[in-house]
Every structure is written in structure tokens, then in C-alpha cells.
């Protein structure tokens, strides 16, 4: 799928509207990080990754790991918008019996969720292991892993960062959603992790630092990663928590808070939804 920049912007907007409506319908969830990663998901699924909703388990496909599982509303949304599920099913997020668990579950949705996530820090190791298996088997798919910046305080991530450079896993691309916020406040005040570019470079990675809301820059960074033949690439994407909803932007509170009915209406209006919002089927609880 190769959407142009205008289509990617539209897709990112759609993801944001979905995220707000899904979390509002669920009554709980993590809107902040999800809104901040809309362009990352749009660029990955709308342009960069080789994948197809018509052939979900194609062995040659590129693979994606959401290590920061709490922002899964945005992931489920992009999956719906590129054809992996009916948009109406997004309304089942976090509901009993749904495939769309509060954190991504391989048990509940094995064709799509490569590895369950939720406990922060676990994704990159699995991505590395898959890249090693691909090398042994001669499969050429690339492997993408998304993490939050606070998540980089986990020790296992740095073990995996060492492994990826030690084994020269050039097919691995790590994307950091660098919004400088986590639950207890600013990452820099909780336990600083900067400078990330210098850290990744000194760990033997190829670091690219970009504006994470600029889809053209994201596409360029992914192209650079593809061209790199000996080192893994870290795309350090500067993002804004709550991006697109002014009262959520840059507030740690919105890491994991549910908007009220009024806040939902205000957020949707800001996100370009017309009153009575009908540009796609209304969210319903569709349990599969």
C-alpha cells in the first residue's frame, strides 16, 4: 500500500477520531500516546510496510511489534482502516469476548498480533529473534518495533539494543515515540534518557531523529533504514502526547484517562468530525 501524503494525513486524522471514540466507548484506555503515534501508524501501514489485509499471514510480509501495548487503540484503528477488520468492530475495544483486548493479545488474535504486549520493554527482543530466524530461513521480511520513550527506562530494552547491533540486524527498525511524558510526569524528570540519538549511535545503531508528526520525514527515515545494510536503525520520532486534541496535548494525565462525553464531543469536533459524524459506520460492539 502506497498512500500519498494527503491520504496519509487523512488516515492519521481518521486514526485520531477512532482513538477518541473507541476509548470513550470503552470507558477506559490510553489516548495520549495513541494520538501521538497516529502519523507513525499511518506511515507504517499506509506506505512503508509490505503487508496485505488480503493475505495476512504471507510469509514474506514485513512484521510489526507494538512493544508499548497500551497505545493499541491507534494500532487497532489503522488495522481497521487498511482492511484487517470491520471498523464497527473497533467499538468492542476492551469489552468481554473481544479480539481487541486492552493490551494486544496473541492468544485472542493470533493472525495479527505477533506477540502479546503490555509489560513494557519486551518487544524488541522478539523482533530481534524473528529477524534472526528470517536470516536462517532466507526470508526477507523487515521487522518493525514501536516503543515509548519512557519504556526505554526498562533494562531489557538495552539488552536487546546490544543484541541487535551485535548481530548486525539491519532488517530491524525501532521507532521511539519520543513525547517526553510518562505516567508520573516528564521523562526527563522521572529518569532522563536523552540524548537518544547519541546513545543509539554509540550502541552501534544508525539513529535518525525526526518530527514524528511529519509523514514525509517518517517515510524518509524508513527509506534510510531500508538502505542501511549492516546496522539496525532507530527512528527517534519526536511526538506530542495527545496530539490533535488541544486539551490533551502535552499532559501526562492523558496517558491513561478516558474523556467524558463532553470532552469526547469537543475532541471529535477539533479532530474535524462533522456534527452527527457519519464518514464511516458508527462504532458498535461487534464481538467476533
Amino acid at each position: 500500500m502506497k498512500l500519498d501524503l494527503e491520504q496519509l494525513a487523512h488516515l492519521a486524522g481518521q486514526i485520531r477520531r477512532d482513538v477518541v471514540r473507541m476509548i470513550s466507548a470503552a470507558g477506559s484506555g490510553h489516548p495520549g500516546g495513541a494520538l501521538g503515534a497516529a502519523e507513525i501508524f499511518a506511515a507504517l501501514y499506509g506506505h512503508e510496510m509490505h503487508h496485505s489485509a488480503d493475505n495476512i499471514t504471507d510469509p514474506g510480509r514485513d512484521r510489526f511489534f507494538l512493544s508499548n501495548g497500551h497505545i493499541c487503540a491507534a494500532w487497532y484503528s489503522v488495522l481497521a482502516r487498511v482492511g484487517y477488520l470491520e471498523p464497527a468492530e473497533l467499538g468492542s475495544l476492551r469489552k468481554m469476548g473481544s479480539r481487541l483486548q486492552g493490551h494486544p493479545s496473541r492468544e485472542k488474535w493470533p493472525e495479527v498480533v505477533e506477540s502479546s504486549s503490555g509489560p513494557l520493554g519486551q518487544g524488541l527482543s522478539v523482533a530481534n529473534g524473528l529477524a534472526l530466524a528470517n536470516t536462517l530461513s532466507g526470508d526477507r521480511g523487515r521487522v518493525y518495533c514501536l516503543v515509548g520513550d519512557g519504556e526505554l527506562q526498562e533494562g531489557i530494552i538495552w539488552e536487546a539494543i546490544l543484541s541487535a547491533s551485535h548481530y548486525g540486524l539491519a532488517d530491524v527498525t525501532l521507532i521511539v515515540s519520543d513525547n517526553d511524558l510518562q505516567i508520573d510526569g516528564a521523562v526527563s524528570s522521572v529518569k532522563g534518557i536523552q540524548p537518544l540519538g547519541a546513545k543509539f549511535n554509540s550502541f552501534g545503531w544508525h539513529a535518525v531523529e525526526i518530527d514524528g508528526h511529519d509523514t514525509e520525514a517518517l517515510i524518509g527515515a524508513f527509506a534510510e533504514a531500508r538502505a542501511e545494510k549492516s546496522r539496525p536503525t532507530a527512528v527517534i520520532a519526536e511526538t506530542v502526547m495527545g496530539r490533535g486534541v488541544s486539551f490533551m496535548e502535552n499532559l501526562a494525565k492523558w496517558h491513561g484517562a478516558c474523556p467524558s462525553a463532553d470532552e469526547t464531543a469537543a475532541a471529535l469536533e477539533e479532530l474535524g468530525a462533522a456534527p452527527g459524524y457519519t464518514d464511516y459506520p458508527p462504532l458498535q460492539e461487534v464481538i467476533r
Binding site: E114, S115, Q122, L124, S125, V126, A127, N128, G129, L130, A131, L132, A133, I156, A160, S163
Partner: peptide, 8 residues
């Protein structure tokens, strides 16, 4: 985690 990816 790496073993998990290899199994995957």
C-alpha cells in the same frame, strides 16, 4: 524474548 522471536 529472542528465543520467542525465533520460535515465531
Amino acid at each position: 524474548g529472542t528465543a520467542a522471536g525465533l520460535a515465531l
